[in-house]
Every structure is written in structure tokens, then in C-alpha cells.
Design a protein around this nucleic acid. Sequence first.
DNA 1: TGATTTGACATACGGCACGTATGTCGCAAT
DNA 2: ATTGCGACATACGTGCCGTATGTCAAATCA
Lengths: 212, 212
Amino acid sequence: MTTGRRAQKMEETRAKLIRTARAAFAEKGYAAASMDELTARAGLTRGALYHHFGDKTGLLRAVIDQIDAEMVAKARAARDRAESPWLGFVAEGVAYIELALEPEIQRIVLLDGPAVLGDPSRWPGQNACLRETTETVQALIEAGIVRPVDAEAAARLINGAALDAALWVAAAAEPRAVLAKAIEAFRCLASGLLAAPPPQPPPGDHVTAIEN
Amino acid sequence: MTTGRRAQKMEETRAKLIRTARAAFAEKGYAAASMDELTARAGLTRGALYHHFGDKTGLLRAVIDQIDAEMVAKARAARDRAESPWLGFVAEGVAYIELALEPEIQRIVLLDGPAVLGDPSRWPGQNACLRETTETVQALIEAGIVRPVDAEAAARLINGAALDAALWVAAAAEPRAVLAKAIEAFRCLASGLLAAPPPQPPPGDHVTAIEN
DNA sequence: TGATTTGACATACGGCACGTATGTCGCAAT
DNA sequence: ATTGCGACATACGTGCCGTATGTCAAATCA
């Protein structure tokens, strides 16, 4: 079963459209991205677009699905590299902050996505990032590491804080320095979820682990 | 100096446009709101609009400024009603969550605003909500109540978490129940900023203070 | 193998909405 | 009283989205 020459070429044009849309949405923004120009740049016409994705929002959905999957993979990798479940959770949050520094993710997933498609937790099939964090939190609660709050609520808050922080960092004049501040503040906030509070470092003892 | 009949009528049309836009943006969304229909509903034409606000985004800016001011006033009132500086800070955050339940604020300030105008911290003259929170955090740090993190970073994270939580609550099937979970999780997170951790309630001891 | 059908994609069309350029009318200052 | 300015209306061009229709190659089948 060789997938058929027909279906293969079709997948190719789908991928080409998504790839082109990803670039166009990222640099122009969703609203300002023209479907005529977008499809022409992909060597196609609007006919192909409406055939495969229904309308403009369908294409945005497809693009976001793809990016979302990539984000989950990277965040999970960061979590699994950590030395304890709790540090893995924190690393996951920090990974989201750093991921959201990419203009592509900022513009498409954080700004235009919610505005066009509505609340991310309602995106059908996806919002994989949120589910990933929710499961992590749930496991930490069951292990007695995190206080018994609602896992989904904690995940939403953590994700919201991380992504909003990234928005702030990216718009800052000195992204590197601001990123360090954001990560430090994020660690503080996250520690509020711990069942047994960590030892408090004395004032002025700044955390300097910025690199991955 | 009686402000002149001229200027008075002009202020009146400005206000009428902003009021109508606020309603239209809230129910249709920014992109789907037609300026023709919007101005007609206000008893005017697009000429008035472009004379006063330059373009469509200018009108959005004016609307957001107005809402932002109202939000700050309410959050500050909630803070000042509290019995201690720390509880005031928490009350401010909870107030943001509850404020963001209004569809008007959701749609205009949280969804369309960032998508059209970019990062809120760059909105000229405003983002009064963020500044308010930043100053509150700074005062708490100087009083030794909050750990010495970057005040602006903490404010961004707290605000992002609160507003994102509200987005989640509003989209939920059971807003009342979900709101309680969100507020409880928010209190946990916020406690991570404390210099001296609060006493940990035993598991199952749920906070029930939902009403203002 | 040749006819037929299916479906991926292109082309053509209508309509809406934004921004600008131009016109008009009333208030205010001299 | 005249003149100038500013608030707002009207008219126009342009771009873009969604749909309806057409076309041609590939898969199916007799």
C-alpha cells in the first residue's frame, strides 16, 4: 500500500500551504495576510485553499495545530531532562517562556489565535500544551508534592503567566536581562504551589540559571 | 470659561462614538464590527470617525483606554478594602479575575486588544492595570512582605495568570464553580511571592470566600 | 483498454469594508 | 459683517474574502 500518487501530491500541497501561511501569518499577522498573495507565493490559488481548509480560519487552525505539537514536544523534552518531578514542572514552565520568545509563536499562537478562534481551551483536538501541563500538575498533586488544588486551574494560571511573561520579554528593549527577571519571578510564583515550601534564599541571592 | 458650545458638542459626539464602538466591539468582535454600521447606529457617518480617531485602531485605542481606567478604579477599590497590604494585593488579583469575566473586557481588552495593538505594556499612556499592580508589588517588597524579585516581572506574571484564568472561567460550562477553583489556585500561586510562607492548611480545607 | 466518474484545483463574480479626497455648513474671531 | 477654520458628510477607489462554476488528470470499472 504505497499511499497512492494522488494522495501523496495532495499532502504535499497541504503542507506547502501550511508552511507558506505560517510564514505569512508570522510576519504580516493574520488579518493583514492576504490569501491571494499567500497562495500565489505557494504556487497555487485560493481555490486550493478553500478546498482543503474551508476558509481562512481553517488554515489558521491547521497552522496552530502544527506549532502546538512542536511546542509540546519541546516542553516535554525540557521536563524529562530535569532531575526531579518538581524541577521538571518548573523546567516545563520556563520552556514555555522561552518558546514564546519566537515571533512566530507570539504572533500566531498567543495573539491572533485567541482573537480569531477564541479561548485556547476550546480549540478542538489541541491545546495540547494545556493538557500536558495539567497532567504534570495532577501527577505532582497525587505524589503529594503540590498542594491539592484543581490541576486544570493551576495549569491555566501557570501557562497564562508564562506566556504573558514571554510577551513582555519579547517586547522589551533588553530581552536577555528581562528574561532572567521573568524566569526568577516565575520560579517564585510556582513555588507557591508546593506542599512543603522550599528553603527561602536570603535577599540578594539571585538565581542565575538562565541557560537551558 | 464655559468650555464653549462648540467643544462641548464635539466631546459629546466623541463619547457617543466610543460608547457605540464599545458595544459593537464587545458583541461582534473588532474585526467583524463594521464602521459604517457602527457610526450609523450612533447617528453619524464614517467622516466623524476618521476625523476624531484617525483610523479604526484609533477608535479601539480610545475604547480600551476607557475600559482600562474603569478596571484600575475597581481593582484599587478592592485592594483598599482589604485589611492588610498583602491581602490587598491578593484582592487586587482576584478582582482582575472577576472583572475579566465580563464579555466586554474579555473580547476587547484581552483578545482583540493585544492582537490589533500588540503587547499591552507598549500601549502608550495606558496599561494602567499593569502599572497599578507593579506599584503594589514594589511597595510589598520594600515592606519586606514579598521576596525581592523584580516588581514589574512579578506584576506581569500575576496579571497574566489572572487574566488568562478569567478567560478560562468565562468559557467554562459552569462559571461559578470554575471561578472558585481559579481563585483558590491563584491564592496558592501568589503565596509563592511571600517572604515568609503562610501556614499551610491541611488537604481538603478549601477556601470558600467567593463573594467579593 | 476505453468510457466514465470523481475530485483536486483554477477562474470568474459579487459584495462588503476600509481609507482618502473633497465638499458643506456653522461657529467664532476680527 | 466678513472671513477663516474646523467638525462632519458625501463620494470614490481599492483590496480582499467567500462562493459558484469550470477544467483536467487520475482512479474505477466494464
